[in-house]
Simulated assay, not measured.
Amino acid sequence: MKKRIMLFVLLIVILIPNLVLAQEIDDVGKVNKVVIYKNHMSESEKQAERDRQVKEHLEKLNFGKDYKIVFGDDSIRPFNDPSDYKHEYGTSKIAVAGGFAGGQGSAGYRFPTGGGFWYTDSGGPTASISVSFPKPFESVSFSVNLGEKGTTGQYVKVDPDSNNYYKLYVEKEYEVTPYVIYKWTWIDDFTGYQWVKWSAGYTKIHLGTTAYPKIVRSV
């Protein structure tokens, strides 16, 4: 039993420094993390943006595009009257998409005397965001562009390092809010009208983008 305990302690002594070193290597580039974009919207402004996106969804569903004559006068009103619909928001979740910016060699770059990357937040490869929500809301999945390494834009510094190769890594943060649209629907003579789930969707608000040099291999 004592031998087993001693062996276990020895393994911990050997492995812990390696685990700490791996964490330190992964965090080296994060010292130079650059904020590319930060959202400064107030909560009321965010809510207005959510409402705008829901309205846009309704318009894509042809909501309010067809009209009918109202009996008794010459006026017209939407066939799908706004009062026939309501929407309900779920609880928002924060989701982050991350990946390497485009325009980079697969092997990475070494900076013995220091240097850095120029970053442009447009185009480039895509990364997916997937978020699950409880019923009656639906799961969400969408893609975002990660931008490109280039010769202009915002500069991301890399400290002098002869031992490691770096690539520019990008993280984009979004606030995702699910919603359900209900329609006031005639069921039957016994039940009458009820609110019935008619459609579902989500709103997304870009909260921020950061970029930093990430080690991809060592010499």
Rank of each mutant, 00 (worst) to 15 (best):
A97N: 07
G114W: 02
A127M: 00
G90R: 02
E175Y: 09
T203S: 01
D51I: 04
I215V: 07
E49G: 12
K86E: 10
G115I: 00
V180H: 01
S75G: 12
G90I: 03
W118C: 04
E59V: 13
S143M: 04
W195N: 00
Q47H: 12
I205T: 08
P125Q: 01
T185W: 02
D26A: 14
I14R: 06
L15I: 08
G72T: 01
A127P: 07
S139F: 15
S141Y: 04
A200Q: 09
V54F: 01
S44P: 14
G115V: 02
W186F: 04
V96G: 10
L146H: 01
E88H: 12
M1Y: 11
D161I: 05
G124V: 02
G64K: 01
V13R: 13
V70A: 06
G153N: 01
V28S: 09
F142H: 04
L58D: 01
D66N: 12
L21T: 13
V131N: 07
K172R: 07
F190G: 13
D189C: 11
P17G: 04
S106R: 08
R110E: 11
L168V: 08
R110S: 14
K167C: 02
A127D: 06
K3P: 15
S162H: 13
L58N: 06
S218L: 08
L61Q: 10
L207Q: 05
D74E: 14
R110T: 11
W184Q: 09
R77Q: 13
D188A: 04
D27Y: 13
V31D: 12
Q23E: 15
F8S: 14
Y179Q: 05
G98C: 06
V170R: 01
P178H: 06
P213D: 03
I187D: 01
N163F: 11
K38C: 03
Q53V: 05
S92V: 07
R50F: 14
V70Y: 05
G102Y: 03
E43L: 12
E49V: 12
T203R: 00
